[in-house]
Amino acid sequence: MSAPLTYRYDIDGENFTSAGEASVKVKKALRQLGFSQDVIRRVSIAMYEGEINMVIHANGGFAEVSVYPDRIVIVLDDKGPGIPNVDLAMQAGYSTAPEQIRSLGFGAGMGLPNMKANTDEMTIETEIGVGTKITMTVKVGT
């Protein structure tokens, strides 16, 4: 199989204002590559939610988006505190985001469920005190 087209981004954990910049770039790149609006939107929403999460909870990290002919794979890797209870974090409405984040319009406990809803596969590898790696796949319809 040919090597995927890969985009890598550092996510700045100090700056909530710039959160989402990588997702905007990915969206533009996927548009240029000619993917359908549905695929582009699903990838964009999943990645944007993940990026926001990394800034809120994990002090940033890096994102890698690989484009294959039949799928797009998004990897979000951080060195944050880890997720103590993944089942709980996956429940819609459950959030540990601080009040200040809610006042910015986020932290409703919809991030992880929405990432899952917009992707075909999602795996979460997390270890307390080490970090979290989330891998999401969006299949490209033929």
Binding site: G20, E49, L104, G105, F106, A108, G109, M110, A117
Partner: peptide
């Protein structure tokens, strides 16, 4: 609440909000 816009909204052209930030 941008979280809710991201989670519940589809195919909408106009966002009406009182929240002001780049996000």
């Amino acid at each position: 609440m941008m979280s809710d816009v991201l989670a519940y909204v589809k195919d909408q052209g106009l966002l009406i909000t009182g929240l002001v930030n780049p996000q």
